[in-house]
Design a protein around this nucleic acid. Sequence first.
DNA 1: CGTTCATCAACAACGATTGCTAACAAGCAA
DNA 2: TTGCTTGTTAGCAATCGTTGTTGATGAACG
Lengths: 148, 148
Amino acid sequence: MVDDVKSPAELTDLFRAQGLKVTPQRQAIFRILHESEVHPSAEAVHAEVTRELPMVSLRTVYQTLNDLAAMGELVQLDLGTGAARFDPTLTPHHHLVCDGCGRVTDLEVDFPDVSVPATLHRGFTVSSTQIVFRGRCDACAAAVPVHP
Amino acid sequence: MVDDVKSPAELTDLFRAQGLKVTPQRQAIFRILHESEVHPSAEAVHAEVTRELPMVSLRTVYQTLNDLAAMGELVQLDLGTGAARFDPTLTPHHHLVCDGCGRVTDLEVDFPDVSVPATLHRGFTVSSTQIVFRGRCDACAAAVPVHP
DNA sequence: CGTTCATCAACAACGATTGCTAACAAGCAA
DNA sequence: TTGCTTGTTAGCAATCGTTGTTGATGAACG
Ligand SMILES: [Mn+2]
Ligand SMILES: [Mn+2]
Ligand SMILES: [Zn+2]
Ligand SMILES: [Zn+2]
């Protein structure tokens, strides 16, 4: 079972409960995240939002995404693709990252053997484990047969 | 057996073979990388270099680190710690990243079970697998006992 | 020694993100 | 409804890490 980002209605309640106001801009962001199958950057969310509300600033999008991440309703990923990616899937999972187009795909597989051996952790306390498989997605592999 | 960055002498030969000149600045960078136990950022390398050669510009450091990375003699890591880190250990391995101080520690352990199941890779071709354990190093765990 | 290339300084510029602030508008009370 | 209060927004400046540009200088290599 996958723990996804809450529905726009639930996020609305949550924001009100935190004393935050629920604006049309925020509601649009809630909706976009809830419907998103990808791992959008702030820019990408902004591009979506401005299709409905052309005047929303990128600043506002960052603000709301940060608020959601701070509440734990959204996961911020830094995968070395330039911009941070926001993940509406809250359950811990891993990722395939395409070096060609930057596409991020979920890998919902548990690797129970992956942990730091007690003899090697030297006092380090692990709070999260991220596995990133880098390579090329089907589309990018087809586009560049041999050499770039 | 660990495949480390080549010695200053070897890198000197390599640069000459590529038609690149070997300057005191570059030699200092070669030496620093060869002696480094950490995963320095370009800034950190620059700070070291300027202890010997105070006039070396950060631009030159970036240039040389990029040259080395392009030759495959140095690995550039993006671990979400702000600046890129340069890794003198060339053998594939994994990392512990401290969320407190940004320290990066090697984990030279092989996890043979970590791979993308054939039923799930959907045409994705994996070229590298990175495992990052995030958490707190001993020093940072001690510094922040309960709450920040 | 002469050619070539690297370096330097001093910038500007970049992309991603955050800080600042004046103007605005949502929420609430009367 | 009206008006007040306060959170929110848009717009812009600024930040950080990194790269591009310039032209003058100097060093490396053959
Ligand atoms: Mn994901
Ligand atoms: Mn390493
Ligand atoms: Zn791709
Ligand atoms: Zn630490």
